[in-house]
């Protein structure tokens, strides 16, 4: 396939177009992704997450510059929320990465969440593969870690860096909300701000309570804007990768990630079949019956499932 050839030969525009296709019309992208798949699996994937304003983009920028000095190529997927009201998004992560935009060894793509989170993690996984096939050796996925759904997206990473900062008042609350468990490395950025030591102590205490597995996440201090702590962060990322390889957890994680991807795609496919084969009128009728207690939701689901199965065996409308 022409486009696959272009991407593996490093054609940025072809890669960018395929990411757009995956975002806009996944079914069409699928045929290309199928062929691309054998060229992927080489990149190291790092998830960067944390509350808004913690410094994720700045830290990604600094880490990228350092990797570039070592001759490594980098891909960055920066995800920002789409407004649920207008469907629009303001994607501003590039503001902190201006110097990277003309570096031929770096490819940055901004993505909106577009309101379909199952779909988003499917698209993110596709984007990772595309940048991987494009030849990027390290790929960052940067996303605001505020909810379980966003957390799901960075879960596909080999290493997850969780960034927070002092003085947000509720930062511990954010960390509590299911994110704590996925951090492999914790970073307290803007460490010159008041409350840094207290925050570190709180995180350390929580990590002590959270003993699951052999890896005890380190808690680091950074001041990203002045490069303080960046080298150490890089060292810890390398350290974590070594641990993943030695302990066999890398293989385990990649298995989990592949499994998650398969299930994400199944879910999206069935949602589509549902939308294609069950009319809104029929759905509304059933909802009315359920509300009136003429029918229970379980029987309703059975009826709908029967239609889905029939539609599927008929070759479906896709």
């Amino acid at each position: 396939m022409e486009i696959v050839k272009k991407i593996i030969n490093g054609d940025r525009r072809a890669a960018a177009k395929l990411i757009t296709l995956a975002e806009n019309d996944f079914d069409k992208a699928e045929d290309i992704l199928k062929e691309l798949y054998s060229y992927t699996g080489n990149a190291l994937v790092i998830g960067i997450t944390g509350p808004p304003g913690a410094g994720k983009s700045t830290i990604t920028d600094k880490l990228t510059k350092s990797l570039r000095k070592q001759g490594k190529t980098v891909g960055i997927i920066a995800i920002d929320p789409t407004s649920p009201f207008t469907g629009g998004a303001l994607l501003g992560d590039r503001i902190r990465m201006q110097d990277l935009s003309t570096d031929p060894g770096v490819f940055i793509r901004s993505m909106g969440t577009r309101g379909h989170l199952g779909g988003l993690s499917q698209v993110t996984q596709a984007a990772v593969k595309i940048l991987d096939a494009l030849g990027k050796e390290v790929i960052f996925i940067e996303t605001v870690g505020v909810g379980q759904a966003e957390v799901d997206i960075v879960k596909v990473a080999d290493t997850v860096v969780l960034i927070t900062m002092p003085g947000m008042g509720d930062d511990i609350q954010i960390i509590k909300a299911g994110i704590m468990e996925i951090g492999d490395i914790f970073v307290v950025n803007k460490a010159d701000k008041e409350g840094c030591e207290r925050l570190i102590t709180e995180i350390e205490m929580m990590l002590d309570l959270n003993q699951n597995g052999q890896w005890r996440p380190p808690v680091l201090k950074t001041i990203a804007t002045s490069d303080f702590g960046i080298q150490e962060l890089e060292r810890e990322i390398k350290h974590h990768l070594e641990y993943l390889k030695e302990s066999g957890e890398l293989e385990q994680r990649r298995r989990e990630s592949a499994k998650k991807e398969i299930f994400d795609i199944i879910q999206e496919k069935w949602k589509e079949i549902l939308a294609d084969s069950v009319s809104n009128e029929f759905l509304n009728e059933i909802v009315t019956k359920v509300v009136k207690r003429d029918e229970d939701p379980y029987t309703a689901v059975k009826k709908i499932s029967d239609i889905l199965m029939y539609s599927y065996t008929q070759g479906g409308k896709k």
């Binding site: 789409t82 207008t86 629009g88 998004a89 303001l90 994607l91 501003g92 201006q98 901004s110």
Partner: peptide, 10 residues
């Protein structure tokens, strides 16, 4: 953005 577009601001 409010018109539903994805705006990349640099």
């Amino acid at each position: 953005r409010d018109a539903g577009m994805e705006v990349i601001y640099t």
